[in-house]
Design a protein around this nucleic acid. Sequence first.
DNA 1: AAGTCGGGGTT
DNA 2: AACCCAGACTT
Length: 353
Amino acid sequence: MNIFAKHLIDWYKYEGRELPWRETRDPYTIWVSEIILQQTRISQGTAYFHRFIEQYPDVSKLASADEHDVLKLWQGLGYYSRARNMLTAAKQVMEQFGGKFPGTYKELLQLKGVGEYTAGAIASIAYNLPHAAVDGNVLRVLSRLYAIDTPINSTKGKKLFSQLATEMVPKEAPGTFNQAIMDFGATLCTPGKPDCPGCPLSDMCEAYINNSVENYPVKEKKTKVLDRYMHYLFIRHEDRLWLEKRNDQDIWKNMYQLPLIESYEVLLPEQVLHSKEWQAIFDNAQVEVRSVSNEIIHLLSHRKIHAFFYEIQLIKGEVHHPAKPVYLKDIFNFAVPKLIENYLTEKIQITQS
DNA sequence: AAGTCGGGGTT
DNA sequence: AACCCAGACTT
């Protein structure tokens, strides 16, 4: 075994974290944990992991689930394509792999939502196969260890780091090594203020030797954030509220929301009330606009959403909109984006107090 | 190769 | 405000 792997596994033995999904070798359970933890901190994902395994204890249960139920379970976690893809993948396991979770790296890669990282993680942790699992932690650790300037998110960088990681994986303990290097990156070789004095690899770390640890890893690009303006209509009539399902190829696909008037520039309430969209929705109906919320900023990784909530009472007439009236007592059964959840939670509390 | 897709914690 | 988190998919 190479010296890096030896030190990392030794460190892991004493400093590694105890995590729920480390108590099993079941590939389904490990898969669930890996998908949940994509771009997600353990502190945020753990509760979702427990609820997911409780509701869908095996792949056949998940395969026969309703997509909306899975999205509801995923609500608040973000990157909802993960939930939709898991349902697709579960059906793949039932149909293409006869209900048995695929047992090789190549087969794992065929599952929807499983990329190189996740396939390597499952293959190594569940099956002890010698594949690397290169996540953000591994990129950081390797870039420092070898003082590599190639951007980690460039095509060249991905290939290079994947190669390095694969060479480092010891055939004796691939799963243990992959979890060790990830824990090491998450708790010691951290993005800011890494604990170099307490690091068992500092003697061999090129970046530390050059006193340049903070310069690694190198990334190219930055995502530019676009503004979107969402004018949500909280339309009430007696004990019902209008909700619609988002179907477009867009954020929050297949989740529910309040009827929406969207613009790509700032609109005053006066302009919303006189917009074509508004006129089309309410036509000859009689409504009262009870209130308009302040601007609520909802930040996503690549969008800045400016949201406004219009509280509208339908007095009489019809609402011409694909949205359907649902009973207020049922609204929390619908999967909604965090932005909507926050508003509804606050609004219903006020309504009931 | 660049853009899309969430939400939350840390600095 | 910027960065990052057990990334993958689409264009």
